[in-house]
């Protein structure tokens, strides 16, 4: 034992170097996990405070583009109002309004920090627990799905966008309704990958990909992007496709946190044992 210590003592600096490097590498590759744990609250509050001051200074210069984007969104929403539509079918139908209940509400938020060029991109928004934001809520924007809330502090929330290697979001082909998984290979922030599309699904470039209401995070039908390139995995019997995103993350500024009012009920049905 003494001999071992005598041998190891001159190398103590090197061993410490190896241990610290191992810890740093571990943090590098486990980024989203360590953030989720004890550091997030404090880091988010400090970061959020400084970045929101900076944001206030620069927001003025974006007003014109911001107004254009809001007008476009307004126009699209107006088009969806019942008053903007006409009845195409001859048969009159009665819509019982009391049979509709609100399932999703949207909390508007602004992005105060975003990264788009890392493997594990992140977004920090200026809404937190005090405004009703919680973990695992969806985040959408004009143009489509943005990501999922990963951690929340009192006034800020951390979003894992769909352009993060740790993001896995359910999606659906709009035309054929086939279900698949959305992931990101870490290369181009404008292109994500749609995986495990059954090989009997009719799919072609240009098809639209939309969100799916599985897991009760996003409302069904929020646009995501269009199919760019398709590859077939014959062994596994699946297609994989590249998807051009509708959202330009480099210009993203205003988002909406999706609050599913029935989520607790859905979770209770899906995991009845969780309550026990």
């Amino acid at each position: 034992m003494r001999r071992l210590l005598q041998f190891a003592y001159p190398l103590r600096h090197f061993f410490l170097f190896l241990s610290l490097e191992t810890a740093a590498f571990y943090l590098s590759f486990q980024y989203s996990n360590y953030h989720k744990t004890l550091f997030f609250g404090l880091a988010a509050e400090v970061n959020g405070y400084i970045l929101s001051k900076k944001e206030r200074l620069t927001a003025f210069f974006r007003l014109e583009a911001e107004n254009r984007s809001l007008s476009a969104e307004n126009a699209r929403l107006r088009g969806q109002l019942r008053a903007s539509q006409y009845r195409a079918a001859g048969q009159p139908t009665v819509v019982d309004d009391s049979s509709y209940r609100q399932q999703y509400t949207f909390i508007p938020a602004e992005i105060i920090d975003i990264s788009i060029r890392s493997r594990d991109n992140t977004i920090l928004i200026d809404r937190g627990r005090k405004q009703g934001v919680a973990e695992n809520m969806g985040v959408v924007a004009e143009g489509g799905v943005v990501g999922i809330i990963d951690a929340v502090s009192s006034h800020y929330a951390h979003v894992i966008p769909i352009i993060s290697s740790s993001s896995h979001v359910c999606a659906r082909l709009k035309k054929s309704h086939f279900f698949a998984f959305l992931s990101w290979d870490g290369r181009d922030y404008r292109i994500v990958q749609l995986e495990e599309i059954p090989d009997h699904a009719p799919i072609s470039p240009g098809d639209t990909v939309i969100s799916d209401s599985h897991s009760a995070i996003f409302p069904a039908g929020v646009p995501i992007g269009t199919i760019r390139k398709i590859e077939r995995d014959r062994l596994r019997g699946f297609y994989a496709a590249d998807v051009d995103l509708f959202i330009d993350f480099a210009r993203l500024h205003r988002v909406y946190v999706v609050k599913n009012l029935l989520k607790a009920e859905v979770n209770k049905v899906l995991n009845p044992s969780a309550d026990e």
Binding site: H13, L16, A24, S28, Y31
Partner: peptide
């Protein structure tokens, strides 16, 4: 080395960059 790690880790924490700066600091 401990100071290098702490400094790098503070930067990583504020930038959300995992442990890259900590590794280079050490």
């Amino acid at each position: 080395m401990l100071l290098g790690f702490l400094l790098g880790f503070s930067v990583d924490l504020l930038m959300g960059s995992g442990g890259m700066h900590a590794a280079s600091g050490v």
